[in-house]
Amino acid sequence: TTYYDVLGVKPNATQEELKKAYRKLALKYHPDKNPNEGEKFKQISQAYEVLSDAKKRELYDKGGE
Rank of each mutant, 00 (worst) to 15 (best):
T1L: 14
T1H: 13
T2P: 04
T2V: 06
T2K: 05
Y3G: 01
Y3W: 09
Y3A: 04
Y3M: 05
Y4D: 00
Y4K: 00
Y4L: 01
D5K: 06
D5G: 05
D5H: 07
D5N: 06
D5R: 06
D5A: 07
V6E: 04
V6R: 04
V6N: 03
V6T: 07
G8Y: 03
G8R: 05
V9M: 04
V9C: 08
K10W: 07
K10G: 10
K10Q: 12
P11D: 05
P11I: 08
P11F: 11
P11A: 11
N12T: 15
N12Q: 09
N12Y: 09
N12R: 04
N12L: 06
A13R: 00
A13W: 01
A13V: 11
A13E: 01
A13Q: 02
T14Y: 01
T14L: 04
T14R: 05
T14Q: 03
T14H: 03
T14F: 01
T14G: 04
Q15G: 08
Q15F: 14
Q15D: 10
Q15C: 11
E16K: 10
E16G: 08
E16V: 07
E16F: 05
E17Q: 09
E17C: 05
E17T: 05
E17G: 04
L18Q: 00
L18R: 00
K19L: 15
K19G: 08
K20M: 13
K20T: 10
K20D: 14
K20P: 01
K20H: 10
K20V: 14
A21L: 02
A21K: 04
A21M: 04
A21P: 00
A21Q: 05
Y22S: 01
Y22H: 04
Y22A: 02
Y22F: 13
R23T: 12
R23I: 15
R23Q: 15
R23H: 15
R23V: 15
K24S: 12
K24G: 08
K24R: 13
K24C: 11
L25H: 03
L25V: 03
L25E: 03
L25S: 03
L25M: 05
A26N: 05
A26T: 09
A26S: 11
A26E: 13
A26L: 15
A26Y: 15
L27F: 10
L27D: 15
L27C: 12
L27R: 12
L27W: 08
L27H: 09
K28N: 06
K28P: 03
Y29L: 06
Y29Q: 02
Y29D: 02
H30L: 06
H30E: 04
H30W: 05
P31Y: 06
P31T: 07
P31A: 09
D32P: 14
D32F: 07
D32Y: 07
D32A: 11
D32M: 11
K33P: 04
K33A: 12
K33V: 15
N34R: 07
N34I: 05
N34P: 06
P35L: 07
P35N: 09
P35A: 07
N36S: 11
N36M: 10
E37Y: 15
E37T: 11
E37I: 06
E37G: 14
E37S: 11
G38Y: 15
G38F: 14
G38K: 13
G38D: 10
G38I: 15
E39I: 08
E39Y: 08
E39Q: 08
E39R: 07
E39F: 08
E39S: 07
K40G: 04
K40S: 06
K40A: 10
F41S: 03
F41L: 08
F41Q: 02
F41P: 01
F41T: 02
K42C: 12
K42N: 08
K42Y: 13
Q43S: 08
Q43M: 11
Q43R: 08
Q43V: 10
Q43H: 07
I44N: 01
I44V: 08
S45M: 14
S45K: 14
S45Y: 11
Q46H: 14
Q46D: 13
Q46W: 10
A47W: 01
A47N: 00
A47Q: 00
A47H: 01
A47Y: 04
Y48I: 04
Y48G: 02
Y48T: 01
Y48N: 02
E49C: 14
E49D: 11
E49K: 09
E49S: 10
V50L: 06
V50I: 11
V50R: 04
L51E: 00
L51K: 00
L51T: 01
L51D: 00
S52D: 02
S52Q: 07
S52G: 11
S52K: 13
S52A: 09
D53A: 04
D53R: 03
D53Y: 02
A54F: 10
K55V: 15
K55D: 08
K55T: 14
K55P: 05
K56Q: 11
K56S: 13
K56G: 06
R57F: 02
E58F: 10
E58L: 08
E58V: 05
E58S: 07
E58R: 06
L59M: 13
L59V: 10
L59H: 07
Y60C: 04
Y60F: 04
Y60P: 03
Y60D: 03
Y60I: 04
Y60A: 03
Y60K: 03
D61G: 03
D61V: 02
D61W: 02
D61C: 04
K62S: 12
K62P: 04
K62M: 09
K62N: 12
G63A: 13
G63T: 13
G63I: 12
G63Q: 14
G63H: 15
G63R: 09
G64C: 15
G64N: 13
G64T: 14
E65G: 13
E65M: 15
E65S: 12
